[in-house]
Amino acid sequence: MRAAAVFIALAAAVAPIAVALAAWELSRVGVHQGYAPIQPIAFSHKLHAGDYQVSCMYCHWGARTSRHAGIPSLNVCMNCHGLLTRQTTDIERLKEAVQQGRAIAWTRVHNLPDFVYFNHSQHVIGGVACQDCHGPVQTMERVRQDKALTMGWCIACHRARGPELQLARQATLGRGDPHAPFPGLDCGKCHF
């Protein structure tokens, strides 16, 4: 009897904590914030984008015209490394891959589910900076997913900045109803 009472008391104490823990875990299913996988070549954005100030668009040129920003093909790397003499293990790996005709299989860091349509060029032309969604990449030795990239996080920005961007665009075009609803909040904008 006593043992049963103790057990029930313990369970009553532990249960709310367990529930809260489970609820939090469940809400983080599919959220990969902080994911920083090891890459086949330890490319440092801190070195290239930070110290050497190579523009994001030099390598990730797709971001302006395509839905994918893309990862640069090796001939982009060799634009510089074909001329530079500095040799490290990673640069050696790079040159080996080029010589063997083998593309590098990078591990994808930022990934959205299949039912989400995200178009880089829409945002890049729209005036969103790379760091707004990808965080301070120019400070990262190894790329990590800095933001949650959850729908709520996207919608927060759409709500906050969308109407202002739409007004700016209307001003540029010289037409448009300033009271028109911002289409960026339609479900079908990203889910189709």
Partner: peptide, 17 residues
């Protein structure tokens, strides 16, 4: 579920050239 939260690893393979 916490073991599930990572998801499958995906590779992104650009062109060589």
């Amino acid at each position: 579920i916490s073991a599930c939260s990572r998801g499958a690893e995906q590779k992104a393979i650009p062109f060589l050239n």
